[in-house]
Amino acid sequence: MWIGGSLAAALFLELTPLPEGWNVWRPPWVLLTLLYWTMAVPHRVGVAVAWTSGLLVDAATGALLGQHALGYAVTAYLMLRLHAQLRSFPLLQQALTMTLLLLPYMSIMLWVRGVAGHPPGSWSYWLPLVSTAPAWILLTVVLGRVARLRPSGMRAEHPDV
């Protein structure tokens, strides 16, 4: 399944080691991939899929169980509300909107970390917001190809990719 495969690849990107000092810039790959599919095929990827993937990310990164699940579910919900408009945006505008869409997610994560007793304690926590827009453009190009490879289902819903 393409969607599952792309999510696994995103988790790989989320975990694979980056050179020292680069990892604070890492965009939330899994979330962005989820958002892409929510936008492209909202009838198949929605809040439930996002929540489940979040749970897996929690287990993979050693975070509190439910932390990413909550953040992903809320963001996917927002995406579901907005997907019709977002789809008609030009790519650059889409990418910038993603940055805004990530704000509630980042705030929820920050809050959970604070409550759990390990706040990041540094402004660099917000750096992924900067890398989100380029990451989104990259994802759209790559996943757009993937969606085109698949004959049915996705294309009917999202013919212009």
Binding site: W51, G66, L70
Partner: peptide, 16 residues
């Protein structure tokens, strides 16, 4: 969505 949020909150509390 609301249900899942509550479930995550519950899970986090239990896990912590």
């Amino acid at each position: 969505m609301v249900v899942l949020s509550l479930v995550s909150l519950l899970l986090m509390t239990l896990d912590q």
